[in-house]
């Protein structure tokens, strides 16, 4: 495992920890899209089915279990926590996730490495992850809730994507025969969406001094 991959995983992990800490400390999930969080839960569950029949490393297993449990933990807070659930922007978070899920299902059935249940679900998770942030993007543009912690979350997620691209470049040049074009193309789309996100933050920050960029 190279340093870019490890740093990417760590920023991904930190982004989730930051979000959980924000929710726990402020007892508020204002500005957080439940739909995006539910899409991430679907992504993790459909991708990490191999937990049951493939062992790669302790690190790999621990991270997979962390991603699955933490995503359900966030969903639990937003749906069921007595105080936190009341701060959820229900009326604003109305993105139709079917518009993302259904095309991803069809694309995964059509474009995959192998037509098997596990492989198609894995491919579906790759496609879905690349667009899962969109409800969050729409929600932030509607509510203008760009508090520092939410923007830290988004910034860390963006850093995770950028580091994974560096990881793929590194592996491409150092590992003979290393190639995974489904992951590459989806990851590039995902990073492009984050760039759009980042642009939005810069614009918000310029418009309003109160909104600060993550340091």
């Amino acid at each position: 495992m190279n340093i870019f991959r490890f740093a990417g995983d760590m920023t991904h992990l930190c982004s989730i920890v930051v979000l959980l800490l924000k929710i726990e400390a402020t007892k508020s999930c204002a500005g957080v899209s439940l739909r995006t969080q539910e899409l991430y839960a679907v992504v993790f569950v459909s991708r990490y089915l191999d937990l049951f029949f493939t062992f790669i490393s302790v690190y790999n297993t621990v991270m997979k279990v962390f991603f699955i449990t933490s995503s359900f933990c966030i969903i639990w807070y937003m749906r069921h926590h007595r105080i936190v659930s009341q701060t959820y922007d229900r009326e604003q978070d109305t993105f139709r996730v079917a518009f993302l899920v259904v095309p991803c299902i069809f694309l995964a059935l059509l474009v995959n490495h192998e037509f098997s249940m596990v492989e198609v679900l894995w491919t579906f998770s790759i496609y879905l992850e690349s667009v899962a942030i969109l409800p969050q993007l729409i929600l932030l543009q509607r509510t203008f809730n760009v508090d520092t912690l939410t923007s830290n979350y988004v910034f860390l997620l963006g850093a995770y994507r950028a580091l994974y691209i560096l990881n793929w470049l590194y592996r491409y040049f150092t590992e003979p025969g290393y190639s995974q074009w489904i992951v590459w193309s989806s990851g590039t789309l995902q990073t492009a969406i984050y760039c759009d996100f980042f642009y939005y933050y810069v614009v918000s920050w310029r418009k309003n001094e109160r909104l600060s960029l993550p340091s």
Binding site: R5, D9, H12, D50, T54, I56, N60, M63, K64, F67, N112, H113, E114, F115, E119, W122, Y164, N167, S179, Q180, V183
Partner: peptide
């Protein structure tokens, strides 16, 4: 479909 890549990334 081509060769299935190893799934060692998260």
């Amino acid at each position: 479909p081509d060769q299935t890549p190893p799934k060692d990334e998260l």
